[in-house]
Amino acid sequence: MAKSIKVRAKAKQGIVTVKALMNHPMETGLRKDKKTGKMIPAHFIQEVTAKLGDNTVMSAVWGGAISKNPYVSFKCSGAKGDSLTLAWVDNKGNSDSATAKVK
């Protein structure tokens, strides 16, 4: 699962605003496949971590009730030129991460 994350970070007066989009089906495990009538197995992102340099600035635990192809935005203190890394892990053990330079 390469390049499942799009992340942008912008600094303004010492506060970095991060916006990220991830590609993920986010299946709750409660939906039925209309054709086969079988339940679609749960497949969703469970943990999201954001780091600015070496410092964790935001970490989250998610359930299946986050929308498909999740969007998340948050703020942290930082400056232009810092590098921000966002990583996720889903309930099947898949993971991905992306790094963006703060603009």
């Binding site: 410092n55 986050i66 969007y71 942290c76 203190s77």
Partner: peptide, 12 residues
């Protein structure tokens, strides 16, 4: 982790 209290996302 000490970041400002701001979160924006989309939920079901």
């Amino acid at each position: 982790h000490g970041s400002p209290a701001f979160i924006s996302t989309r939920i079901k």
